[in-house]
């Protein structure tokens, strides 16, 4: 073993420092959020805060109950997933397994352009175009509903789900498919029983990352969903998401007030959810690599 050059060791050391720094930064962000957020428990007990539905932070008798916001975020996000998963995964299957290469070459960039549309533009589209259509189609007075947010969020996360699913499908070794055809399986049977199951860890990761993107999205839900802090009873109710609550209320809140701490706690919940989702995604990737 030759002696490593000093410069080489410096580079190694630098790279590891950077890697560790990013872990440290994430830990510090959470610590900072929580250090501010937990102070809300001095104003009300956690049971009320997490399971009450009355969000009235600027009232004379303020209440900081977050369940309606949490449920609001989840309803919009899950609604978006219901739309985007079949479309995204279906697209990926079509582009990687069925479409002739020259068609895939045209379609793929078009889907990717979707990812580049600024969310404020999508939000504006939802407000001006989609909302009146929803109001007309479902006979509700206002189209600013969870459904509106879910539809437009689905458009936003479609490219994420499609791209990663397609990569996973393309990574399935050619030999798998050839073996399947050799056994007399049809094209469809090969897709269903060989390609998709083999790509499943990647597709799951695609779905989880799409979820993470959707639940953290702010501008679109702020503009599209009506922002009423009520417990939604369906997709045709307006909802107030956690992200839009922070975005629209943080501007004026007095530092060190209960409202300020409450918004940090909302941030903690959001962080915890997206952290859990990302953790799940990376565990699935790891398990896929081991097997």
């Amino acid at each position: 073993m030759g002696q490593k050059k000093l410069s080489e060791r410096a580079i190694e050391w630098g790279a590891s420092a950077v890697a560790h720094a990013s872990i440290l930064i994430i830990a510090l962000i959470f610590l900072f959020l929580f250090a501010e957020g937990y102070k809300i428990f001095a104003y009300d007990d956690p049971l009320h805060i997490f399971f009450g539905t009355d969000w009235q932070p600027t009232s004379q008798n303020p209440r900081y109950e977050m369940l309606a916001l949490i449920v609001g975020s989840l309803v919009v996000t899950l609604g978006a997933m219901l739309i985007a998963i079949p479309l995204g995964v279906g697209c990926a299957i079509y582009l990687s397994e069925i479409a002739p290469p020259h068609l895939a070459e045209i379609l793929k960039p078009i889907i990717e352009i979707l990812a580049g549309i600024p969310s404020v533009v999508l939000g504006f589209f939802a407000l001006v175009v989609l909302a009146p259509l929803i109001s007309l189609a479902f006979g509700v007075p206002s189209g600013l509903t969870a459904l509106n947010g879910a539809l437009i969020l689905a458009v936003m996360i479609l490219p994420t789900i499609e791209t990663i699913s397609e990569d996973a499908l393309r990574a399935v070794p050619k030999g798998f498919r050839e073996a399947s055809f050799a056994m007399g399986a049809t094209h469809w049977e090969t897709i269903r029983h060989v390609a998709v199951p083999a790509a499943m860890p990647g597709i799951t990761v695609a779905i989880l990352l799409g979820f993470g993107r959707a639940i953290g999205e702010t501008m679109v839900v702020l503009m599209a969903t009506g922002n009423a802090s009520i417990m939604p009873t369906g997709l045709l109710d307006p909802v107030r998401a956690m992200t839009s609550t922070i975005a629209s209320e943080m501007g004026e809140v007095a530092q060190g007030s209960a409202h300020y701490f409450a918004l940090f706690m909302v941030g903690c919940i959001l962080f915890a959810i997206s952290f859990a989702v990302n953790l799940a995604a990376s565990m699935i990737v790891k398990r896929g690599q081991n097997s």
Binding site: D54, Q56, L127, V128, A131, P132, S135, P141, S142, G143, L144, L222, M223, G226, N227, A228, S229, I230, P238, R240, S244, A247, S248
Partner: peptide, 21 residues
Amino acid sequence: KDSKYSAGTALLVQSVSQDKT
């Protein structure tokens, strides 16, 4: 409680112009 909140004046006018109620 069921008030809808608009993030800006222009958005609010837009929303009201779309909702008969």
